[in-house]
């Protein structure tokens, strides 16, 4: 399956009432099995594009397809369900819930659809183990930042999504912790997932299979010919 975007456009009214083009991308495709990094100056529309691909950000125009499914045509609740099952999101500041244990954090998306998370506990625990997060810490704050980002990654992987979208996943980590996350991403891509990360991190860019550069809402490098 391929993630295909065509004719994406979003124009907002900037300061002084002048229209301001946030995003203008005629076509964009991303294949599973590759780690793609989306980079570019800040304010170039990277995050907007990322959130648009996850179905969270609505645009003025354009269609996004995942295989045969036209994401942009789905009603909102269906889009939310698609995102829950098919997309794993990872953030720069993790966005974990401090008051929940690492395990419960991984189970958060389960509660969106089910009352009891019990049956998913084993999977959550094995995900944490696989990612090398110590399972004996009841409190999230007892974990290092790198470990916290891996908890967030485990949460993204809870439903084994074919797409991983990450917004500056290594920006708030030191180099060693960042390296572990990058390794994790490469492994996910090798396993056949589509991994797309917005990043300025040279290490992450160096590890990427494809690099897309966005400037003023337009793809200036890596656009398909």
């Amino acid at each position: 399956m391929t993630l295909t975007a065509t004719g994406l456009g979003l124009t907002l009214t900037g300061s002084g009432g002048r229209p301001f083009e946030v995003l203008n991308i005629p076509t964009l495709t991303a294949e599973p099995g590759a780690l793609t990094v989306l980079t570019g100056p800040s304010g170039s529309g990277k995050s907007t594009l990322l959130f648009a691909l996850s179905g969270l950000q609505t645009l003025d125009r354009g269609t996004i397809r995942w295989g045969e499914t036209e994401i942009t045509a789905l009603p909102e609740p269906a889009r939310d369900r698609w995102r829950r099952g098919a997309v794993g999101l990872v953030f720069q500041s993790f966005h974990l819930i401090d008051e929940l244990s690492p395990l419960d954090n991984v189970l958060v998306p389960v509660w969106f659809g089910a009352f009891f998370a019990g049956p998913s506990r084993a999977r959550a625990a094995s995900l944490l183990e696989e990612l090398g997060v110590p399972g004996d810490r009841p409190r999230l704050r007892a974990l290092s930042r790198g470990e916290q980002q891996r908890v967030a990654l485990a949460r993204a992987l809870m439903f084994d999504p074919p797409i991983i979208l990450a917004d500056e996943p290594t920006a708030s980590l030191d180099r060693a912790a960042g390296a572990r996350v990058i390794d994790g991403f490469r492994k996910l891509a090798r396993d056949g997932r589509l991994v797309l990360a917005v990043s300025h991190d040279p290490d992450l860019i160096a590890a990427a299979d494809h690099v897309l550069v966005l400037d003023h809402g337009q793809l200036v490098q890596g656009a398909p010919a």
């Binding site: 969270l56 909102e76 609740p77 369900r81 995102r83 999101l89 953030f91 969106f112 949460r155």
Partner: peptide, 16 residues
């Protein structure tokens, strides 16, 4: 609001 927005990003519906 940020926490709630994160829930949405993780696939929670508005209703949730």
């Amino acid at each position: 609001r940020t926490r709630l927005a994160v829930l949405r990003a993780l696939g929670a519906t508005r209703v949730y």
